[in-house]
Amino acid sequence: MDARQDDRWSQDVTDRSDALDLEGDVFTWDDPARIAASLKRSAEASDRRKGSAYRSAMSMLTFYMNRAGSQLTDERRDVLERAKGELRAAFGRD
């Protein structure tokens, strides 16, 4: 698989996750609490996820961050890391 196909594969997973129906551009938002709330809503509404809502939401966020890798700016990575903290709090997992 070349890099271009790899990019399309990860974008496809983000866009059409079999476990979660994500709001458009959720990972580009600047408010970590808004990102976390959206992921929580998506995970709780899903009847296709295999694990808990918390695990599905956190896995999708982590997947996105890992796939973006070095292409994430420090500012974007910080927002997404803070979204992880917000997600933990939203699920009572401080």
Rank of each mutant, 00 (worst) to 15 (best):
R93V: 02
R48P: 00
G85V: 05
A89N: 07
T62K: 11
L39D: 03
Y54E: 02
L39I: 06
S56C: 14
M65H: 00
V26W: 15
E44C: 09
D7H: 13
R34M: 05
F27A: 14
T14L: 13
G51W: 04
F63P: 01
M60E: 12
G69C: 03
E44L: 12
A57H: 08
D21N: 15
D6L: 12
R16C: 13
K50A: 07
E75S: 10
D18V: 10
M65Y: 00
S42G: 09
D47R: 15
K50D: 02
A36P: 06
D2C: 11
R76Q: 12
A36G: 04
S42D: 08
K40Y: 01
G51F: 04
D94N: 12
Q5E: 14
D78T: 13
A33F: 02
S42N: 05
L80A: 08
G24F: 15
M58P: 00
D7P: 00
K50Q: 07
D21T: 15
N66W: 01
V26T: 14
D18N: 11
Y64H: 15
K84G: 12
R93E: 04
G69L: 01
T62H: 04
A89H: 07
R55E: 07
A3C: 09
E44F: 01
A57T: 06
G51C: 07
D21L: 15
I35W: 03
G85W: 11
R34E: 07
R93W: 03
D2L: 06
A36H: 03
R49C: 00
W9K: 15
L80K: 06
A57I: 07
A89R: 08
R67I: 00
R88E: 07
R55Y: 03
D7E: 12
K84Q: 11
A83W: 07
G92W: 07
A37S: 13
T14R: 13
D31I: 13
A90E: 12
M60G: 02
M65A: 01
R67S: 06
D25M: 15
Q71S: 09
D31R: 15
A83M: 09
A19D: 09
Q71I: 00
T14W: 10
M1R: 05
E44M: 11
A89P: 01
R48Y: 09
L87W: 06
R16T: 11
R4G: 03
L20K: 04
K40P: 01
E81C: 11
S70A: 07
L20V: 05
G69D: 06
E81M: 13
